[in-house]
């Protein structure tokens, strides 16, 4: 019955197994970041360090392809409020 070879019983196991690892986090407002995951809770509030945030700004006026600008910035340590989280992807488990 166990469909996956991963041994994951619930979604939060994926996060638990990613503690102290570099994770990719996608947030509302076209924000994406990677950083080392130090802590999380049931709201998906996160503490991350050594974070690089990427903000993608799409100009809908200009023609497709030429309209995306990307801003990056680095932060040593931050708290992510859980309600903004869309997706968390751990490093590859291979």
């Amino acid at each position: 019955m166990d469909p996956s070879s991963s041994g994951i019983q619930e979604p939060f196991d994926l996060i638990r197994l990613s503690l102290s690892e570099r994770v990719f986090v996608k947030l509302r407002g076209d924000r994406e970041m990677t950083g080392i995951l130090h802590a999380y809770d049931g709201h998906m509030n996160l503490i991350m360090s050594d974070v690089e945030e990427t903000i993608t700004i799409v100009d809908t006026e200009s023609p497709e392809g030429s309209n995306v600008s990307v801003a990056k910035r680095k932060m040593d340590m931050l708290f992510v409020r859980g309600d903004g989280v869309i997706l968390v992807s751990p490093p590859s488990r291979s």
């Binding site: 979604p11 859980g82 309600d83 989280v85 997706l87 992807s89 490093p91 590859s92 488990r93």
Partner: peptide
């Protein structure tokens, strides 16, 4: 993504 956690409210 190899694995992805998606927060349910979305």
């Amino acid at each position: 993504y190899g694995d992805a956690f998606i927060r349910g409210n979305n």
